[in-house]
Design a protein around this nucleic acid. Structure first.
Length: 423
RNA sequence: GGUGAGGUGGGUGAGAGGCUGAAACCACCAGUUUGCUAAACUGACGUACGGAGUCAAUCUGUACCGCGGGUUCGAAUCCCGCCCUCACCGCCA
């Protein structure tokens, strides 16, 4: 969530930046600022009352000790009135604070000023394109036919065991999964990220820390008996390692990554766009996360973008990078680049990675801070990106690299698969 | 699942109604000494939110000893509820 301090000091800029999302936040921002002034006044009043009560209590203690019981009892009577006032002021101050909090959490992150204005996906800007869209042979097939033809994925079997969206990978299909995971992990490792194997379930505090709770509760599988949530992405456990942590400025950048399965309920999805591997309830992903000094976080965002570019290039897939417009960005992001790989047989772009800078939005909830060189404690910036999510990469690999005789495996992947062709 | 013990600052750990925002030790930071390192010595050393301020330095108030409530003039300390951790037993990859 946006920090109160930011709104206090940069009211107009906050409104300007939120407008990039197509959101007129004037009223909310002004209400926050006004309530803040009111709350501080109330707090001052409450605290001076408490101070009075504290010094009175001290006095009473001293009187009792020196045997002046009568005087002590006389003072005791005075405290009753203070207690009354305390209670009322406390309630009022709490209410004001709750109001500020509710308003603050209702606001999405302020986009960076250079984020394109816009409300719809059509207003996203393509900032980079790479690779030729292949011309496929006559009778080229979409991936959901290829996976069946070459016995790579058994969707029906997954249906039987669990349900739709939980495919079973078989034989070379399973091996391809493992190969991609290892390839992505090795690439991230070489780029300087430390690998983690994280729990696949998290508690509510972690869900809150990265912003899945309370708003997106319905998107996660919830194990109610133990009140744990299946992670929708490794971002949740990895980022939450740093919840309530104060790091030192010289530790930046903190680069973490990990492979996990991801679980998403995807309530409300339907139709052809969820066919095959396009949208699943369980899928594999390698996630990269960085924690960085505010001054350097946008350089880091570029660096992460380059990393993902490298992966797609090595996999010989045609892709493009979109700079998301304000209105198409996630709630918590200040700047997001989406990577889309081209699915030739489906003739459409599939999102396969999303790299974002959250600035202090997540750190504020997480209480993830650092001690700056000036000795002050400040909120750090968090960034993350998929590097990469498997299903749509598999879809694109199969479709784009298909030949009449089978599927070619890109050279970079062959050491991991152990085969260079699927037939 | 059963039984027991326990949650105090970055860490270890004392405190058992007022003298405690909290001893001591360790770590960290600054300084002195030293050819370097080490050692020794000295000092500083929690977080959040307010107020004052030449908005920097600094001074000052409040809250915080797992979380929430209660008793009391006064709670880390007493009472109630909850959460978590550890140990042992049982079961088990």
């Amino acid at each position: 969530m946006i920090t109160l301090q930011y709104i206090r000091e940069n009211k107009d800029e906050a409104i300007e930046r939120l407008a990039i999302r197509g959101l007129d936040a004037t009223e909310t921002v002004n209400a926050i600022a006004a309530t803040d002034i009111e709350k501080r006044k109330k707090q001052t009043e409450l605290e001076s009352t408490l101070a009075e009560a504290n010094s009175l209590a001290k006095e009473i203690g001293n009187l009792f000790k020196s045997g002046k019981t009568d005087e002590a009892n006389a003072l005791k009577a005075k405290t009753a009135d203070l207690k009354e006032r305390e209670k009322v002021l406390q309630v009022e101050a709490d209410e004001l604070e709750a109001k500020i909090y509710d308003l603050l959490v209702s606001l999405p992150n302020t986009p960076a000023l250079f984020v394109p204005k816009g409300k719809t996906p059509e207003e996203n800007i393509t900032v980079f394109e790479h690779g030729e869209i292949p011309i496929l042979h006559e009778g080229a097939k979409p991936h959901w036919e290829l996976t069946t033809q070459y016995s790579l994925i058994d969707f029906e079997l997954g249906n039987k065991i669990t349900g739709a969206g939980f495919p079973v990978y078989t034989g070379k299909g399973a091996r391809l999964q493992r190969a991609l995971i290892n390839f992505f992990l090795d690439e991230a490792g070489a780029a300087g990220y430390t690998e983690f194997q994280m729990p696949l379930m998290v508690n509510a505090a972690s869900g809150f820390g990265t912003g899945q709770l309370p708003d997106k509760e319905g998107q996660m599988y919830h194990a109610t008996v133990d009140d744990l949530y299946l992670i929708p992405t490794a971002e949740v456990p990895i980022t939450n390692m740093f919840r309530d942590v104060i790091v030192k400025a010289d530790q930046f950048p903190i680069m973490s990554m990990g492979y996990t399965p991801c679980f998403r309920r995807e309530a409300g999805s339907y139709g052809a766009h969820v066919r095959g591997l396009n949208r699943l309830h369980q899928f594999d992903k390698v996630e990269i996360v960085q924690i960085q000094h505010p001054d350097k976080s946008y350089d880091t965002l570029e660096q992460m973008k380059e990393h993902v570019k490298g992966l797609l290039t090595k996999l010989e897939l045609p892709f493009r990078i979109l700079h998301l417009c304000g209105g198409d960005m996630g709630f918590a992001s200040a700047c997001t680049y989406d990577f889309e790989v081209y699915s030739t047989a489906q003739q459409r772009w599939l999102e396969c990675s999303s790299v974002s800078n959250f600035e202090t939005f997540q750190a504020n909830r997480l209480k993830l801070r650092f001690k700056d060189t000036d000795g002050k404690t400040k909120l750090a910036h968090t960034l993350n990106g998929s590097a990469l999510a498997l299903p749509r990469i598999v879809a694109a690999l199969l479709e784009n690299h298909q030949t009449p005789d089978g599927i070619k495996i890109p050279a970079a992947l062959v050491p991991y698969t152990g085969f260079d062709f699927i037939s």
